[in-house]
């Protein structure tokens, strides 16, 4: 057995699968990421938007939306506050860079260790989420690029729909809730079957 991946919220986990063996199992993949929360200081929101546009080429989105540019994304959290998602390799550098750039304009909090990103996909991804989440996640109500902070399996999550035709959702959840959420997801997906891949095992 290889050494535990310290980036993973499931350090003891190996890829595994379960539930009924069907044609459309739910694919659950842990996606390690750099996550930085930025909160505009009072009256400085316009400067924050301008600074993020300049340094990251990201247009901070309106409520309920995400913005993407290259390998980064910005997710709306609450008035004046966003979560920046970047590749895991930037954990050592991005939070400090942003803190420096946004000094006086925004509070910058590195959430890379505090949050876990779980991606779920598959033809029945929506049906599985419907068992855990009260929001209408149908394409007409929750399209690619939409995001919402809500409850999934009684756990506070930031859920967003990534681009592409096939249903694919990312759940940003508190790290200490990740095991619980995984359990809820696999239980809800039992009738379709599921496959889980922790970080480190997943293709980058």
């Amino acid at each position: 057995m290889s050494a535990p991946d310290r980036r993973s919220r499931f350090p003891a986990s190996q890829p595994r699968q379960g539930g009924r063996s069907g044609d459309a199992p739910l694919t659950i993949v842990e996606r390690p990421a750099t996550l930085v929360q930025v909160n505009a200081r009072k009256g400085r929101q316009a400067e924050l938007v301008a600074a993020i546009a300049k340094t990251l080429a990201l247009a901070l989105p309106d409520a309920g939306r995400t913005a993407t540019a290259a390998d980064m994304a910005a997710l709306w959290l609450q008035p004046g506050s966003w979560l920046i998602e970047a590749p895991a390799g930037r954990r050592g550098e991005l939070p400090g860079t942003l803190a420096q750039t946004l000094n006086g304009i925004a509070a910058v909090v590195d959430q890379s260790h505090g949050r876990c990103v779980i991606e779920i996909s598959g033809a029945e991804a929506r049906a599985v989420l419907a068992r855990l989440c009260r929001l209408d996640l149908h394409e007409r109500a929750f399209a690619a690029g939409d995001s919402a902070a809500t409850l999934v399996g009684h756990v506070s999550c930031l859920i967003h729909r990534t681009g592409g035709e096939a249903p694919c959702f990312r759940l940003v959840v508190g790290s200490t809730f990740a095991e619980w959420l995984l359990h809820e997801l696999t239980a809800a997906a039992a009738s379709y079957g599921w496959r889980f891949t922790p970080a480190g095992e997943a293709a980058a």
Binding site: A63, L77, Q78, P79, A148, A149, T150, L151, S156
Partner: peptide, 17 residues
């Protein structure tokens, strides 16, 4: 009151407002 009432609600699992 029986009827309209102005109340505080905390959207704790959403926008936290």
């Amino acid at each position: 009151p029986r009827g309209w009432h102005d109340e505080w609600w905390h959207h704790y699992a959403g926008c936290r407002q």
